[in-house]
Computed example of a mutant assay.
Amino acid sequence: MSGPAGTASSAVRLAAETWESLFRSQVAVMRKLQSGPAFKTLPVKEYDVLFTLSRCPSGQLRLNEINDKVLLSQSSLSRLVDRLEKRGLVERTTAPDDGRGVLLALTEAGSELQKSIGREHVRDIATLVAPALTADEQRELLRLTEKLRASVAGH
């Protein structure tokens, strides 16, 4: 006998299965991409910081703003940024509106490395995605994931 409780249970189960499938697909794709040639020069987590800075219109972000966009803890991000700075890929400057605030920006070397890795990374993504999904399916997946992200951001 299926009543309202059975329907709610089915909806919960479907949501959980959908999330697990999405998550496991993302993990499988990321593992494949991380093992590819694009990330031999720089680990994917470090590239993520360079990529995030490259997408910023002002070219500068505070550490906490980067932290909101990457999947790292604040302390891990601080250590990672220290490594990037030592390699000459990012630079810190004092925020003009707040003497205690620190802004991060790509150096010229960081920008060039991000672009180089990014071009190869995009080709690797296409190599994985294009044989698995048609162009229409890719557009539908994009639409659905953007819809899900917008809904979560609205909560």
Rank of each mutant, 00 (worst) to 15 (best):
55 R>F: 00
49 V>P: 08
43 P>K: 12
56 C>W: 05
48 D>F: 07
39 F>R: 09
68 D>Y: 11
61 L>H: 02
52 T>P: 12
50 L>M: 03
53 L>V: 00
63 L>M: 14
66 I>K: 01
45 K>L: 07
53 L>Y: 02
64 N>A: 09
63 L>T: 10
64 N>G: 05
40 K>G: 08
57 P>T: 01
71 L>I: 09
58 S>E: 14
50 L>R: 00
71 L>P: 11
72 L>V: 08
62 R>D: 00
46 E>Y: 11
62 R>L: 05
61 L>C: 04
67 N>M: 13
40 K>L: 12
59 G>R: 07
64 N>F: 14
40 K>N: 10
60 Q>Y: 13
70 V>D: 07
60 Q>T: 07
43 P>T: 09
52 T>R: 11
59 G>A: 05
66 I>T: 03
47 Y>P: 02
49 V>I: 12
50 L>E: 00
70 V>N: 07
50 L>T: 00
47 Y>L: 03
69 K>H: 06
43 P>F: 12
69 K>W: 06
49 V>A: 04
67 N>F: 08
48 D>C: 04
62 R>P: 04
42 L>E: 05
66 I>D: 01
68 D>E: 14
48 D>N: 11
52 T>A: 12
70 V>Q: 05
72 L>N: 06
46 E>A: 10
57 P>A: 02
65 E>M: 08
58 S>F: 09
49 V>F: 03
66 I>G: 01
41 T>S: 13
45 K>D: 11
44 V>P: 06
64 N>C: 11
61 L>M: 15
40 K>E: 15
55 R>I: 00
42 L>D: 03
59 G>C: 11
40 K>S: 09
47 Y>A: 00
49 V>R: 03
55 R>M: 04
51 F>P: 02
45 K>W: 10
71 L>C: 10
68 D>C: 10
71 L>F: 14
56 C>I: 01
64 N>V: 14
64 N>Y: 15
64 N>D: 15
51 F>V: 01
68 D>T: 09
54 S>M: 13
41 T>Y: 12
44 V>C: 06
61 L>A: 02
71 L>Y: 14
39 F>N: 09
72 L>H: 07
50 L>A: 01
41 T>H: 13
48 D>Q: 14
45 K>A: 03
43 P>H: 12
63 L>K: 13
65 E>K: 06
52 T>N: 05
61 L>D: 04
46 E>H: 14
58 S>W: 11
40 K>I: 05
45 K>P: 04
50 L>H: 00
57 P>Y: 03
42 L>F: 06
41 T>V: 10
56 C>R: 04
66 I>Q: 01
71 L>A: 11
68 D>S: 13
45 K>Y: 08
46 E>P: 10
44 V>F: 15
61 L>S: 02
66 I>P: 05
41 T>M: 14
65 E>C: 02
67 N>H: 15
40 K>M: 12
62 R>S: 02
69 K>C: 05
41 T>R: 15
72 L>W: 09
58 S>A: 11
44 V>Y: 13
43 P>C: 11
